[in-house]
Amino acid sequence: MMTNTGNRLTQGQFSFLPDLTDEQISAQIKYALNHNWAVGVEYTDDPHPRNTYWEMYGMPMFDLKDPAGILLEINNCRKTFPNHYIRVTAFDSTRGVESPRMSYLVNRPKNEPGFGLARQESHGRNIRYTVHSYATDKPEGERYTK
């Protein structure tokens, strides 16, 4: 599919680049910590672009000085959900709300079947289009097990 070259999910920052190494991830986390942003780890197996609320892997982490603690949680999450999408989100509270400043993938399933285009005939001869993730045809938790 044109918008999903190589069947790789492209959401959040850096998603058109090759997967970040742990060292590059740590550098991005450091950038967030330097701004006093809280950093959270989240996972999902529903890659639809409108699925904004992913599951939190533990609470967002406040008051950390060094990326090592967050990388530790990322690796724990990878161990628990090796075939899920995992993202890191940095929250900025300076405006009184925790608004995301950064968000990027740090783990993805081995095989990403991608999205299909679904057409719906509506009134008159109109056609509605939407995307549908092949993975979500299966129930939660079984979507990326080969």
């Binding site: 982490m61 008051d63 950390l64 000085k65 060094d66 990326p67 090592a68 603690g69 967050i70 530790l72 949680e73």
Partner: peptide, 8 residues
């Protein structure tokens, strides 16, 4: 606590 102390 360990996570907070990391790097220090």
């Amino acid at each position: 606590v360990l996570k907070k102390a990391m790097g220090g």
